[in-house]
Amino acid sequence: MIQQLIFGIVTGSIIALGAIGLSMIYDILDLVNFAHGDFMTLGAYLTFLFNVSLNLNLILAAALGIILTGVISLILDKIMWKKLRDKGAGSITLLITAIGLALVIRNLIVFQWGGSNVGFDLPLSQNLNFHGIMISTSGVLTVVVAALLMIALDLILRKTKIGKAMRALSDNKNLARITGINVDNIILWTWGIGTSFAAVGGVLYGLNTVIRPDMGWFLLLPIFAAVILGGIGNPYGAMVGGLIIGISQEMSTIILPSSYKIAVSFVILILVMLIKPEGIFGEK
């Protein structure tokens, strides 16, 4: 029971890192980014590239992989999303485009690195054992990194001009524009932060399990559930939503076959949509 709770917090931290970016991008760009999970995968593979193929130490490799993933999302905004925005493309057009992008990213990964599992070059680590409860070092690392990033995000959103402008944009995009806020610039910041957080989540997932091309896709459904649970556009809600989903998924393994984990997040998703579609923290 406590064991499952601990697994749940680890999984939940990874889901939360994905959910934050998806939620902000959903809200600010009106884009249901079906490619978001694939950015998590991309972050993990680019880290793998620097770590294993180029022999860099894991921390440096992760930093490079994460930054590069963020930069790729900025380039994609310039060459794709901005053009669609300027044409006035609506949310369904954007959603279908995102599916196309997801196919491209995932299959480029398969093309480059193959379809089978890979792993980082890790020193052998011992699991910590507290009276029969196992905690892996990567699990501890995951929770610590996720918590630090969430604190950092909170500071950015509350203390910096860019962060406040992001919240302003999420409140009212038209007003932001007529107030003189540089909307395109803030959108780039949103992509950068949202996607690099996703990449961190992908790397942490790789540390805890393995890296495979479809890992992001399988994280996407629980991430959607976390976003909707927390309320679209509410990064704090996404954090809490991620933890709730992660813990519920792992706890469910006590009574259900573990292959139905994802079904649990799906059921939560449906219930929230039907009962409180604005999310548990929604005020609307």
Binding site: T93, T97, G100, L103, V104, V110, F111
Partner: peptide
């Protein structure tokens, strides 16, 4: 699949 994804993007754009 990369080509199909690109096709979808180009069609949408």
């Amino acid at each position: 699949m990369v080509i199909i994804g690109l096709l979808l993007i180009v069609l949408m754009m």
